[in-house]
Amino acid sequence: MTNNLQELVNQINKRLEELEYGTDPNELYDPIRYIMSLGGKRLRPVLVLLAYRLFKEDHDRIIDQAIAVEVFHNFTLMHDDIMDEAPLRRGKQTVHEKWNESTAILSGDVMMVKAYDLIIEAEANLKQIVKDFNHCAAGVCEGQQMDMNFEDLPTVSEAQYINMIRLKTAVLLGFSLKLGAMLANATESEANALYEFGVDIGIGFQLKDDLLDVYADQAKFGKQVGGDIISNKKTFLLLKALELANDNQSTRLNDWLHQSDFDPQEKVEAVKNIYNEIGIHELTMAKMNDYFQKGFEALAEIEVAEEKKKPLIDFADYLINRDK
């Protein structure tokens, strides 16, 4: 991450440290403070600020609206972790593990309310901002439900999977960029082009996340490497492997998919070896790069000086090359 991007992350983190969510009962608010203290890349609020800075310089005045997106994102993570029965988030206990599921649900609900509190202080077209935020939030929920539905389906097409990650992950990155543009009073076409840029890099971002789940360094990743393989999660990697496997590879892969009693590390290594035989790493990288390229094409449509776009290009490059 470049120094300029890191400065924005530092500014966001400083404001998050100051943010008050509530005081009593502690059992309700401590989990919120806990999950927000776990860090993270702060991708979404950075995107809000970068989009704003394409058109205006005084980004300090919209920090709280940028943070609203981060609070909402962490609300979704808190609830997703319950549904996924995830033990770790950013290398630490998930909220439902540290407290309990009921507390995690209720604390997450308060985070959603707080996100609205921060958004409604916007000095722009508040009605349109809230409408777009609601559309985005509903899309995230639709994507999560699709992801859960996929668990019970025998097969999922590549198009279905891409649409799911578009909703579950990418639309929030798109909204973050559009929000920054709207807060800067950009034109509708400029805001929409930034939205498309965000959705495309968001799909690329999730494909990279799928890849890292299998190939990342555990010490850097913060989550369990191979978790998707252990849980038979229908990722792009698994779907392409099932599509392209020869008879021998298909037999071995399906054998692991249908085993209920296995050594997790052995399964991860065995499935990873099948992926390597098929060339899944390279295929996933190619698909990821296709979406990043589409994003760059959308960004090129915005008629601002190229030096103003450079931080967004640097940010996309960071997403492409990240290792955690």
Rank of each mutant, 00 (worst) to 15 (best):
S260D: 13
E306C: 04
V199Y: 04
Q145R: 09
L118T: 00
P311V: 01
K98P: 09
L5E: 08
H59P: 12
K233R: 13
I229F: 10
Y29E: 09
I63G: 04
E17T: 04
E190P: 05
K272H: 13
H73L: 11
K92I: 03
L319N: 04
I162T: 00
A115Y: 02
N100I: 01
K168R: 14
I119S: 01
Y215L: 13
L183Y: 00
T169A: 15
T103V: 10
S176V: 00
T187E: 14
E188S: 08
I12A: 01
Q249N: 08
L257F: 10
N289S: 07
T103D: 13
A137M: 08
G227C: 12
D317Y: 07
G198W: 04
G174Y: 03
N4A: 14
G91I: 02
K92E: 14
A300W: 01
V304N: 06
R322D: 13
Y291H: 06
K41G: 11
D213W: 00
E277R: 07
Q206N: 11
L253Q: 07
S260I: 01
K309M: 06
L88D: 07
K233P: 10
D64W: 00
A138D: 09
E27G: 08
Q293D: 15
L172E: 06
I230W: 09
K14F: 15
D209I: 07
Y52R: 07
L50K: 05
L173D: 04
A170D: 11
K56F: 05
N134I: 03
E17D: 15
N276E: 15
T23L: 14
Q293Y: 06
D109M: 12
N134V: 02
M78C: 14
N246H: 09
A316S: 10
L207F: 00
D132C: 05
D109P: 11
M148L: 15
G108N: 12
S250W: 03
R15T: 00
Q144H: 09
D132H: 02
L179N: 00
K287P: 04
K41Y: 13
N289G: 06
E142W: 12
H258D: 14
G143F: 12
W256L: 13
V71K: 03
R90D: 14
N26C: 05
L283M: 08
I120E: 03
K168C: 13
N125Y: 09
R33L: 10
H258V: 02
P311C: 11
E17P: 10
Q144D: 11
E196F: 11
